[in-house]
């Protein structure tokens, strides 16, 4: 589904990603861990198409398409989803209008008619239940005045609405209390299907108690320095990142 080959990326001339190689197949959950400043969020941003990062080398294939040639909106329409570490507040734009625009633009890309209003409301209701998001939140402006936990739940709600092929969740666990964490993780687990995949970026092992990864990668200094099964997360939890930093 996703093939990243020797990816290098800069911000303002400073190299952050220094040769990432990663392959993700349908049905898999990958966790990317690593200390602060290792390039985790940069990788997520580059995948989503944020312009401030300049890709200097390498390629990314997403279901056979050259991802780097696609605009952020077309990446989304192709089935890529980024759950933001810090979701953006959009005053004045209601959740309903925002989601309706998103769903319809996705449908248009696939040659489908806009969704019927009644079907849309039904879809909203179903997905709200799925991620246990408060109904009142979807009556408000996008993320405006939401608590940290509500914002993260809203990310999962959007993911549920759009049903992406590949979801990248950037530090979705940061700032969550244990109940919110469980709700978010449950949402992700419920959305898991054999034909989709996810990348869970996290700093702590805690989230991985709820979302069990097939693979764990450790990103350090712009490179994946270690990949293994879920047991790697436990090892990290035990030893911290120092043994990675000190080059084993």
């Amino acid at each position: 589904m996703l093939k990243i080959k020797d990816l290098h990326a800069n911000i303002k001339g400073k190299e952050i990603l220094k040769g990432i190689n990663l392959e993700i197949n349908a049905g898999e959950v990958h966790a990317i861990m690593g200390p602060n400043g290792s390039g985790k969020s940069t990788l997520a941003a580059v995948l989503a198409g944020r312009e401030i990062f300049e890709v200097t080398h390498g390629e990314i294939l997403f279901n056979g398409k050259n991802l780097l040639e696609l605009s952020p909106e077309n990446r989304s329409r192709e089935g890529l989803f980024l759950g933001f570490q810090y979701p953006i507040e959009i005053p004045g734009v209601s959740m309903v209008n925002f989601m309706k625009a998103a769903v319809n633009e996705q449908r248009k890309y696939r040659g489908l008619e806009p969704i019927a209003p009644s079907d849309f409301l039904k879809l909203m209701r179903e997905k709200k239940e799925l991620v246990e998001i408060d109904s009142a939140l979807t009556n408000r402006s996008v993320n405006e005045g939401f608590s940290g936990g509500e914002k993260k739940k809203n990310e999962i709600f959007q993911m549920a609405m759009l049903e992406p092929k590949l979801a990248i969740l950037d530090e979705t666990d940061s700032g969550l209390d244990i109940d919110a964490l469980r709700i978010v993780a449950n949402g992700v687990n419920k959305l898991k299907r054999p034909d989709n995949a996810s990348i869970v970026i996290t700093h702590y092992q805690r989230l991985l108690d709820y979302i069990v990864p097939d693979y764990v990668h450790i990103l350090y200094n712009g490179k994946i320095v270690k990949s293994a099964g879920k047991e790697l997360a436990l090892e990290l939890e035990e030893k911290g990142y120092d043994w990675i930093k000190n080059g084993e």
Binding site: A48, S76, I88, F98, A102
Partner: peptide, 13 residues
Amino acid sequence: EAKFYMQTRGIGE
């Protein structure tokens, strides 16, 4: 930032 956020949901620029 808000524009980019919307784009990542498939909403055109």
